[in-house]
Design a binder for these strands. Structure first.
Lengths: 153, 153
DNA sequence: GTATAAAGTTAAGCCCGCTTAACTAAAAAG
DNA sequence: CTTTTTAGTTAAGCGGGCTTAACTTTATAC
């Protein structure tokens, strides 16, 4: 490796700050809602990836199907998730956020952003433009990585 | 495209992807080490902010001093943290990472970072340069926000 | 010098997440 | 049609995090 040290260094510094910040932030927010972090993570997962079955949850979080079922059940009873039957496979369930769940996540994201808004205030217009462009680049790259799009190296 | 995207929207998209990714990643890593997420978070805290007392932990994570004490105790017994007496106040303790603790966190960062390396491979040299610059800007701004430095725009 | 406040610790008890194990029900395979 | 595999649920039990409450020890205030 070591093909571009500045990149590594820059992103490491940023990640160090940002990861610590966001981890702490989510933890405190989840707590303030009365949800545990695992419960909250499931909502995040649904927000991020959309509807899925029980098995997807258990695989994604590396827990047993039993654990996933119990966790989801609490979220269903709290009204954050709905658990419908999959029309194509009557064994399977289709999990999705309810409006209440969607609202909650949105609220959480809102709160997380407040820090970034503070951050924005520290920047000049020019800096902002640079950052925007870089973020768009990164977001696109992240999606490529996520979806397995090959950009041939 | 999307060059007219406001700052907040660009960063929201990025955060949406990145936060979800890093949250999940830390959770799985912590789990793989046998540490709980709260325990792990304390190590992160020490890594990020340096030595501190018991009360700082309890305030930072919004838990009672009792909970902090118990949590820290486990980390001490596992050898990730050392708990010394504060020379200036014999009631207080000074918590700090041991080498073992420091190594663990470094390992975690390393693993988190692998995703970013994949990301880097999706970028052209020019894009990398842009991203580096933006990250430096953000890191600086984050530190200003953290320390309360006034940039006075 | 006594009273009060502050920093941590310890113990009891609760809730929660997770696992294993035993189960139901539906789909796929033969 | 029977067998096996797949999706999910339920119950018992363990361990962890957190809280309250009672305590020890050291610093600070009067």
């Amino acid at each position: 490796m070591t093909k571009s040290l500045p990149f590594s260094q820059a992103i490491r510094e940023w990640m160090d700050v940002f990861m610590h910040r966001s981890m702490r932030g989510w933890h405190l927010f989840a707590k303030s809602t009365g949800l545990s972090l695992p419960q909250f993570s499931i909502l995040m997962q649904l927000h991020h990836k959309g509807a899925c079955g029980m098995s997807a949850i258990s695989e994604r979080f590396e827990i047993t199907p039993a654990a996933a079922s119990q966790l989801v059940d609490k979220l269903v009873q709290s009204g954050f998730i709905k658990r419908d039957e999959d029309p194509h496979d009557r064994r399977a369930k289709l999990l999705n956020l309810t409006d209440k769940g969607r609202t909650l996540i949105q609220q959480g994201i809102e709160e997380r952003y407040r820090w970034v808004e503070e951050l924005e205030e520290k920047l000049t217009a020019e800096e902002r433009a640079q950052v925007i462009e870089a973020l768009n680049i990164m977001t696109r790259a992240a999606q490529e990585v996520e979806t397995g799009t090959q950009a041939d190296k």
